[in-house]
Simulated scan of single mutants.
Amino acid sequence: MADAAAVSAPPAPDAMEGVVATEINGANGAEAEDAAAAPQPVATETLYIQNLNEKIKIPVLKASLRGLFKSYGEVLDVVAHGNLRMRGQAFVSFPSAEIAAKALKEVRGFPLYGKPMQISFARTPSDAVVRRINPNDIDAHKERRMDHKKRTRYINPLKMKFKAKRMAAEMDAAAAVPVSRRPHIQMPDEYLPPNKILFLQNLPESVTKDQLLALFSQYPNLYEVRLIPTKKDIAFVEYMDEGSATVAKDALHNYKLDGENKIKITFARK
């Protein structure tokens, strides 16, 4: 496994500027005019980095980024996560936009762990920047960030893409379940490893999404409920984390939603 010590220094500033100049001069006249007319991005204190090597463990990746950028000034924070939505991305924050702009100019395209980094300015300030510049506003800043996250949860293009793929896979899995009047023998719960998605079976065919939302929202961190149009007796319930899903599963397994049939709840297969 590669580690932070294996990261070499980025190309010299002059070399990086030469690469950029070559790319601009190589464009045709129309492209050059468009580039000149396009609004320039506003420099901020935080850089948004994409195309990072997803095979590198998060602690090693963060240490490598910190070591790479510290030569340009103090690095306030490095944020990177291993979840599906944020994989291959990171944020690096500096005390000023000037430092961030210099780092972007000189490091953009540097092949960190074999993949050239794509760098741009972040659209919003990071927690570390707000804490440094205006510490009295940090609580309000976090509240605004969480509100924005909730409002855009269902319209984020990347999330919608992953959701569409996941729902297609679930539809395929549901379609593959053979229709039989004989009782279906379920895999015992202990053979299904815990995760944040619950698989509901033996639901009344008249069940609605609102009914399931009302039932499962009694337990914190509910993310969404997904019904399967072609199989009305099954559904998927997703929580924000594995622990919350486990609490809901333990509480509602064998619950009689219609007063008769018991709901079978297991962890979903990955």
Rank of each mutant, 00 (worst) to 15 (best):
M1S: 11
V7P: 00
P11A: 14
P11E: 13
P13G: 05
V19M: 08
V20C: 06
A21D: 15
E23K: 11
G29F: 10
A30E: 14
E31G: 02
E33A: 14
E33R: 13
A36Q: 09
A37D: 09
A37G: 04
P39H: 08
P41S: 06
V42D: 07
A43Y: 10
A43G: 07
T44E: 05
E45T: 07
E45A: 15
Y48G: 00
Y48S: 04
I49P: 01
K55N: 14
K57L: 03
K57A: 03
P59I: 03
V60P: 01
L61Y: 04
A63S: 15
A63T: 00
A63Q: 01
R66S: 12
F69Q: 02
F69V: 00
K70G: 01
Y72P: 00
E74D: 12
D77M: 03
V79D: 15
A80Y: 02
H81M: 06
H81F: 13
R85A: 15
M86H: 11
A90F: 00
V92M: 07
P95N: 03
E98R: 09
E98V: 15
A101W: 00
E106Y: 09
R108W: 09
R108C: 11
G109T: 00
F110P: 02
G114W: 06
K115D: 07
P116E: 09
I119T: 02
I119H: 04
F121S: 09
D127R: 12
V130N: 05
N136Q: 11
D137N: 12
K142H: 09
R145T: 15
H148L: 15
K149A: 12
I155C: 06
N156M: 10
N156R: 05
L158S: 04
M160T: 08
F162S: 01
K163E: 13
M167C: 04
A169Y: 05
A169T: 10
E170H: 12
M171L: 12
A174L: 04
A176D: 12
P178C: 06
P178R: 10
V179T: 13
S180K: 05
R182F: 08
R182L: 02
P183K: 14
I185W: 08
Q186N: 10
P193F: 07
L198K: 12
L198E: 01
F199T: 03
L200M: 08
E205T: 14
S206K: 10
S206W: 04
V207I: 07
V207T: 05
T208I: 09
Q211E: 15
L213C: 11
A214G: 08
S217I: 04
S217F: 06
S217G: 07
Q218M: 13
Y219K: 02
Y219M: 05
Y223Q: 11
R226C: 07
P229N: 08
K231S: 01
V237I: 15
E238I: 06
M240D: 12
D241N: 15
S244P: 00
S244M: 02
S244Q: 02
S244A: 11
A245G: 10
A245Q: 05
V247F: 13
K249Y: 01
D250W: 13
A251R: 01
N254I: 10
K256I: 04
N261C: 05
K262M: 05
K264A: 14
K264I: 15
I265P: 01
T266R: 09
A268F: 14
K270C: 06
